[in-house]
Nucleic acid binder design. Structure first.
Lengths: 333, 333
DNA sequence: TTAAATTGCGCAATCGATTGTGCAAATCTA
DNA sequence: TAGATTTGCACAATCGATTGCGCAATTTAA
């Protein structure tokens, strides 16, 4: 059913029908009697305007592109959920793209979304390059989780420096001196900030350079697994591992289990990212908890500010440390 | 940049430009020389046709609506990933809706997607009602995971009956007679079929009615937690619990831990759904593994068959049982 | 050499909405 | 009662593509 057919049914012009249904009856002096009749019949026949035609005419799609590196990572799945909910409540729908941590897919996704004239973009970018953003995107854009230096895209992220600093300080307080850190994608902002926090905490406690291992290549369980295996083969094994995301932590646990070592007796473990099941793991896994709801909601709010032409500021939200049995106190006292 | 501006640049009509760029040059006898020039300039100025206008004209959006009850459930997150990948490879994008297991949100989502003229729908429905599907949807539709009796919507799901039968038989083989089953949303097809498999396995092994507990209300961890708490207070505690999805299983573990009971010494546990971290839990959790990739890919393939007007058949994919330490052998032999 | 066939491309309608403007009819003003 | 206002609604353009049809110009056929 088109508005034309509806108008025919009503024996009036599409103009009038459109004006009533978009709530502009008064503005254009449509009589209340006519308006009533239009609304009545429209709802009786379940008329719903063709959004494609509407979008074309209004140059606005009420659609937001959401680009995510890996939706099967629960961190991003949670994010997607919060974002979708926030956008839907405000009348927008979500076109979802999973980039599988592949920059060329990310670039392609952006092109596809722009051609579809989304009103705005929420991107958790791979994070290593951003020329494809800089050059093409001329619509409101908010970066989530990972951001870029030396540019002025708005972003919403956790205070990764602080989270890593806290986690590392916690390990040190438990007597650990020889700490390994398994990182994710090296050149992404969360990774760089977490590493920075890690190193700063070590520096602040005068722990020597020799006792720091930083290794790893990406945010996958495989990376956690392989990196841990190589750590366990070292002459002097670290007494604690700091895994920079939940998947790395799982891979690390798996490697430690396979080596028939025990957490935390033989080696302590702490993770960035908290998951519901962490307390059920063997042993319960300590973690830096990111404020997931806050990130999603803030990102949506920031995007709407941009859409409304307001000035926006980026946000760094505060993480919290959850202490569980996976870290052993080995201090001599 | 619109096609009109591009045509002006080229000093020819939009007709010609459009025909070249849509690959209809030969068909409409555009000379190769002209075609060359069009393609050259088009790519130089990075022309990308406005998809909204295109969609309107072609009555086709190359967009699929994906409706999911809860994307933060890893089962659905994995599904979303596979589906998104499959669709993108075939030139479609995904409009994502999370219904939060709320039928009215599901209904609304369908209306929104239809108004946006998606070409097809992939729905993992709440599963308890389907009038809103029957009455409104006149485009290709494939149900995922949950389906309905007495109608002919195509669906793709796991053979839930078989999975539950296998899991229950496994428990029985380990000597368990007194088995509780914590179910999910009662009137959904996976739940009904899993319950059917559970009961059939008990029947086939002549286990009396008194020794069966079926309880629970939905697919949440909270349900698993509360249901397990009530189970543990019974005079005769079951020796094993069969949790009908991954979140219920986690809730059950939490309740058992809190009661200071041990798995599997005090009580055995097995879950429907497998997750990467199940082997890392305390103890490693036995599970029925659903073929996630298969479900996603089959659903996409089925949808495309429908889009191409082919006859389709629904699919039930075979699950597999993963035996781990969470089930104890208590047989007397 | 002329009619027929082919080549090459553009006009204008179309998809389904929204909206600036205009034009009667009804009402008001003096 | 004539002119000025106001009321109520419709015409037609527009958004940016695609496409049936038609019309020259060129080539081929006889």
């Amino acid at each position: 059913m088109t508005i034309k057919e509806l108008a025919q049914e009503l024996e009036m012009s599409t103009t009038t029908v459109s004006r009533v249904l978009t709530g502009q009856g008064k503005k254009y002096r449509i009589s209340e009697k006519t308006a009533q009749r239009v609304r009545e019949v429209a709802s009786k026949v379940d008329f719903a305007p063709n959004q494609i035609a509407r979008n074309l005419r209004l140059q606005k799609t009420n659609t937001i592109g959401l680009i995510i590196p890996n939706i099967s990572n629960p961190f991003f799945a949670n994010l997607a959920r919060t974002v979708e909910e926030g956008l839907r409540k405000r009348g927008k729908m979500v076109l979802l793209c999973d980039t599988k941590d592949d920059t060329s897919l990310e670039k392609e996704a952006i092109e596809l979304l722009l051609a579809r004239k989304v009103d705005g973009l929420l991107i958790a970018p791979i994070g290593e390059k951003w020329e494809h953003l800089k050059n093409n995107v001329d619509i409101p854009l908010v970066l989530i989780d990972r951001y870029f230096e030396n540019n002025d895209f708005a972003y919403v992220t956790t205070d990764n420096y602080q989270g890593a600093y806290d986690a590392t300080s916690f390990l040190i307080a438990k007597g650990h001196q020889n700490i390994a850190c398994i990182q994710g994608l090296v050149n992404t902002s969360p990774n760089k900030n977490r590493i920075r926090g890690f190193i700063q905490a070590l520096d602040d406690h005068d722990i020597s350079q020799q006792d720091r291992f930083i290794l790893g290549t990406d945010y996958s369980a495989e990376n956690g697994y392989e990196s841990t295996r190589s750590l366990l083969q070292k002459a002097t094994r670290p007494t604690a591992i700091f895994a920079l995301n939940n998947q790395i932590a799982l891979g690390a646990m798996k490697a430690i289990n396979e080596a028939r070592l025990n957490i935390p007796e033989d080696i302590s473990l702490i993770s960035f990212d908290e998951q519901y099941y962490f307390e059920l793991l063997s042993p319960p896994l300590s973690a830096v908890k990111q404020p997931m709801e806050g990130i999603g909601k803030t990102a949506v709010a920031t995007l709407f500010d941009l859409l409304e032409g307001k000035k926006v500021t980026s946000s760094k939200l505060i993480p919290s440390l959850i202490e569980r049995a996976s870290v052993r106190n080995i201090s001599k006292s």
